[in-house]
Design a protein around this nucleic acid. Structure first.
Length: 953
RNA sequence: GCCCAGGUGGUGAAAUUGGUAUACACGCAUCCUUGAGGUGGAUGUGGCUUCGGCUGUGGAGGUUCAAGUCCUCUCCUGGGCACCA
């Protein structure tokens, strides 16, 4: 027989009406009795439709807000709309309506949807960023930053989206394409407004450390800011006044710098042109790079470049003259726009050097320790330059190796390098001496020298070998007879590549040899011991780094990857930049008495052929400027990036209607920083970083009380379509929350979202219709319980179950692990269902902890059970320790579970063992012998260790 | 390439932080209920099994009385950054 289901539509509508009539969720910010708690979610963009992601964010925050209120906190839980922006403008053009009308219509619709969720946001504090009473303060704050020198207008290379007809911030370009529309961006030189976030790079980085955020979120910001410690070094230019300043993180490799590269846009290129001998080639290359888009430049990672003929720079360490190149792999916007190139120890320089056939000088030796023959205490320490000679026979594709007779070794041909002897000569001499093969041809040197550390048993000394590996090709089998001594030492074995890899050759640096032999040459970026580095040779490269900088007359500096924030946009639907220009073209902020600096209404959305903002066509704006400031004054036509609007919105929630301040200082002092900020992962490096910067800048102006805006940050996971794909109209897998609410009720939908998985984890959760049905089924069971409710005593067991559930729900909700909180509620319901009569007090206690999750149904049932007021005003029960009288623990024998016993948590070991041995399976596993050892953790585990010698296995 | 996060049943996921692996739910199977369904309920549900057990948290080692959890190596997936010197 079908059980009775509750009528969610009727109940939810009625309960919601009661909530809004009683203004249950309007917060009194001035209250002094309760603890304030500021719970924030990212204010939505008024696209016109609330999607399931909004539901996920709003509903779960609402669960927490309700819990906090029941716990007696004064909770600020506001909502607003991030309503400027391009999609609205485009939609307005498409539908031929005013963007403001479009926006307000969408907001109205979304308000209704948010209400249908039963969300307890405080509507009296709603902010709309496109309304003049809001953007007036965006402008006021911008002017403040301008006065501080933090907003600056300058000519700069910028990213331009030809489709959206506007410039983009660095952050809005992904893979060379416009983040919004996917069009390939162009590069333009334009005079634009920037906010100087780079000034705050260090603080944005340092202040991240103590924040209790997830490490991956912090890491993403750290990577975005991109700090790197290095040095500025000066390379003077032979015969000229100027010098080239380079930035490098590897000044330790300075002695290996064999050329210098400037970015093609580097201003010095212009200056040097008069002494350049290949002017045409240089100019052509510069032109080519200028035409290439950023994308083309980064897509084609083949190195290109041109030498500045006749220009030589001087390596400050070696005093050697080195050539100077321009190449587009060096970025004008990072560091000094110039690098010293060390092909031996930098991959990009290596590639370029290969292409240009430039010399490679190795200055750092990687170190390897032979652990089979470690240095021995008290033995003499010797250093030796050696060669490792590898002879390859192409006819059989084998390599010549030596099997040692007196030692269990296999090696290549090796030997010392004599005074004044070339390594190749030395290697060839050793091949003849040790193997007799005379006709070998030099093939190549395998990378730079390596240092190996081992005990040379045959000589009785500790060794550091500085080895250079030389590869030869065997020409023919001509072989001289070997001396007696040589014959006594080893036998010759030709080994295949696989054998070389697997036979355990003795060389400590074997990994490097194999890599260089079979995979080819690469730059050696490991740390190690300096060579060819003058007085620094022999020291560790890291340890000597700062000394080398001092020696070369450079200085240590820190560089950041982050760029200044470009905030100018050439579109209509944004906050007008509150700047006017005097007849000389000097920028002035619009004085506060003229704010809001209204968006003109005589022009509308759209683009202009000249790429200027639509505002450039406004007579009203021009007349306004003339009227207020005088003849010859002109307006700024650009509008602000919407991320400026959203950088401070949360402060406005405190005094959304204030006409005297962007936010009330006393209230800010009380309510900021935000206690918990929930949002999407996509905002980690953009909105979150921008708003931290903005807030810090305001803090420096003493406009906000703290240095950081958000105490906690929670990034929610993503809700996928039923097919496991990202929800998108393209896949036709978009879940319409309104339909779900109509069919299953708001309580079932929010409960399902809570149950789907942990909220603050980077997970993706497919939306399952069956899952919503599951939570609905649970709520129907809750509803059916009312038939069993009666007057009865609460048993000790039931009391314990209530405590257990309460503790779990409390703790897990606080941590946003709503999935396990819901599971605890389900377990409790199962226990209640098992009772013949559900005591009314127990049922009401259950409703109190169910309330945040199923606010409508629980409130309905609460009132039905004669509860006072709303269940959402019922105090949340304290977390108390559960009284446990007996506990079932596992019994292991030798670590394997063999049974379980139920004992008091304080049971003595003796009693526990006695109980355990009464279990047949346990006693059998023990072989009827008393355990040799007992590990007993009361209330947790009993592990009996059988005597292996007696028990026998 | 570098930096994170994560691999547990058919699925979403739990696991008191070293102590009974798979809570809770979905799905599935069998049975009951209803005239039938996208109804309601009961039971079962990691794998293998000679029904005694054995085995099992991506893989291989290790530490420990005891490992999903700690250590070493390795494979795979997702995310971020990427010619940043």
């Amino acid at each position: 027989m079908a059980k009775e289901k509750y009528n969610h539509q009727e109940i939810e509508k009625r309960v919601q009406a009661a909530w809004s009539a009683s203004e249950l969720h309007t917060v009194d910010l001035a209250d002094t009795e309760k603890d304030p708690y500021f719970l924030l979610f990212e204010f939505p963009y008024p696209s016109g439709d609330l999607h399931i992601g909004h539901w996920y964010a709003f509903a779960l925050c609402d669960v927490y807000a309700r819990l906090l209120r029941q716990q007696g906190k004064n909770v600020l839980f506001p909502i607003g709309f991030d309503s400027f922006g391009l999609p609205t403008e485009n939609a307005a053009i498409k539908n031929n309506v005013d963007p403001r009308e479009w926006t307000m219509k969408n907001i109205e619709r979304m308000r209704g949807q948010v209400r249908s969720m039963g969300t307890t946001v405080d509507w009296s504090r709603e902010v709309i960023s496109s309304e003049p009473e809001y953007y007036r303060w965006t402008q006021w704050l911008f002017a403040k930053l301008f006065e501080q020198g933090l907003a600056e207008r300058r000519l700069a290379p910028v990213k331009w989206c030809p489709k959206d007809q506007t410039v983009l911030a660095h952050e809005q370009v992904l893979d060379g394409k416009c983040e919004r529309c996917g069009t390939e961006v162009e590069e333009k030189h334009l005079t634009q407004w920037f906010l100087k976030i780079t000034k705050y790079a260090k603080r944005l980085l340092e202040d991240l450390d103590p924040l209790p955020w997830r490490e991956d979120i912090k890491d993403a910001q750290r990577a975005w800011i991109g700090e790197s410690r290095g040095a500025k070094l000066n390379f003077s230019i032979s015969g000229r006044e100027e010098s080239i300043e380079v930035f490098t993180t590897r000044p330790d490799t300075l002695f290996g710098a064999t050329y210098v590269v400037l970015a093609p846009e580097h201003p010095l290129v212009e200056t040097l042109l008069d002494s350049v001998t290949n002017k045409d080639a240089v100019l052509t290359y510069r032109k080519q790079t200028a035409q290439k888009s950023e994308r083309e430049r980064s897509e084609n990672k083949q190195k290109t470049g041109v030498v500045l003929g006749g220009v030589m720079a001087v390596n400050p360490a070696t005093k050697e003259e080195v050539p100077v190149y321009i190449a587009d792999y060096v970025l004008a916007t990072y560091g000094t726009g110039a690098v010293m190139a060390v092909p031996a120890h930098d991959e990009r320089d290596f590639e370029f050097a290969q292409k240009m056939q430039l010399p490679i000088r190795h200055v750092v030796m990687p170190e390897r320790i032979d652990h089979r023959n470690p240095h021995q205490e008290g033995k003499e320490l010797t250093r030796r330059s050696i060669v490792i000679a590898i002879v390859h026979d192409s006819r059989t594709d084998t390599y010549l190796t030596l099997n040692w007779k007196e030692q269990p070794w296999i090696t290549f041909v090796t030997g010392g390098v004599e005074e004044n002897e070339d390594v190749v000569e030395a290697a060839k001499r050793e091949v003849v001496e040790e193997t007799g093969y005379t006709d070998v041809a030099f093939s190549r040197i395998l990378g730079g020298p390596t240092q190996s550390e081992f005990y040379a048993a045959h000589k009785g000394v500790n060794r550091y070998n500085h080895a250079t590996t030389v590869l030869f090709e065997l020409l023919n089998d001509t072989q001289e007879p070997l001396t007696e001594e040589e014959n006594a030492l080893h036998t010759l074995v030709w080994r295949t590549a696989d054998e070389i890899r697997n036979d355990g050759l003795q060389h400590a640096e074997m990994d490097l040899i194999l890599e260089r032999l079979f995979k080819g040459e690469t730059a050696m970026t490991e740390d190690g011991v300096l060579v060819n580095s003058g007085e620094f040779s022999g020291r560790g490269n890291r340890e000597a780094l700062e000394d080398i900088v001092a020696f070369a007359g450079g200085e240590m500096v820190t560089n950041y990857r982050i760029r200044d924030w470009l905030v100018s946009r050439q579109r209509y639907w944004g906050c007008p930049i509150p700047i006017v220009y005097d007849p000389e073209g000097v920028a002035h902020p619009v004085p506060p008495e003229h704010l809001p600096w209204l968006l003109p209404t005589d022009v509308t959305s759209g683009t202009r052929a000249d790429g200027q903002s639509p505002l450039a066509g406004s007579d009203e704006l021009r007349d306004r400027v003339t009227r207020i400031f005088g003849e010859g004054w002109t307006p700024e036509y650009d509008t602000l990036d919407v991320f400026v609007d959203s950088s401070w919105y949360f402060t406005r929630y405190l005094s959304p209607n204030s006409e005297t301040a962007f936010s009330d200082p006393a209230l800010m002092k009380k309510w900021l920083p935000v206690d918990r900020y929930s949002g999407g992962a996509e905002h980690t490096t953009v909105h979150l970083l921008y708003s931290r910067f903005f807030y810090k800048a305001l803090h420096d102006l003493a406009l906000v009380p703290t240095a950081e805006p958000y105490v906690e940050r929670f990034n929610r996971g993503l809700i996928l379509g039923t097919d496991g794909q990202k929800m998108s109209k393209r896949w036709g897998n978009v879940v319409n929350p309104d339909e779900m609410v109509e069919k299953f009720g708001a309580d079932a939908v929010r409960m399902y979202l809570a149950f789907i998985g942990p909220y603050n984890e980077p997970g993706n959760y497919p939306w399952k219709l069956d899952g919503v049905q599951g939570t609905r089924k649970f709520l129907d069971r809750v509803y059916q319980l009312r038939e069993k409710v009666g007057e009865a005593e609460v048993s000790a067991e039931l009391a314990r179950a209530l405590v257990r559930a309460t503790n779990k729900v409390t703790e897990d909700t606080e941590r946003f692990k709503m999935n396990t909180a819901v599971a605890a509620l389900m377990v409790l319901v199962r226990e209640l269902e098992g009772l013949a009569v559900v005591p009314r007090t127990a049922f009401k206690q259950f409703l109190v902890i169910l309330a945040p999750y199923a606010p409508h149904l629980s409130d309905h049932l609460w009132q039905e059970q004669g509860g006072a007021g709303s269940v959402h005003q019922a105090p949340w029960p304290e977390v108390v320790e559960e009284v446990v009288t007996e506990v079932t623990i596992g019994v292991q024998v030798n670590g394997k579970k063999r049974g379980e016993i139920t004992v008091s948590p304080e049971a003595e070991e003796e009693a526990a063992v006695l109980a355990a041995r009464a279990v047949p399976a346990v006693e059998a596993a023990l072989g009827n012998q008393p355990p040799a050892r007992v590990i007993y953790v009361p209330g947790r585990i009993l592990n009996l260790v059988a005597d292996n010698t007696a028990g026998g296995v």
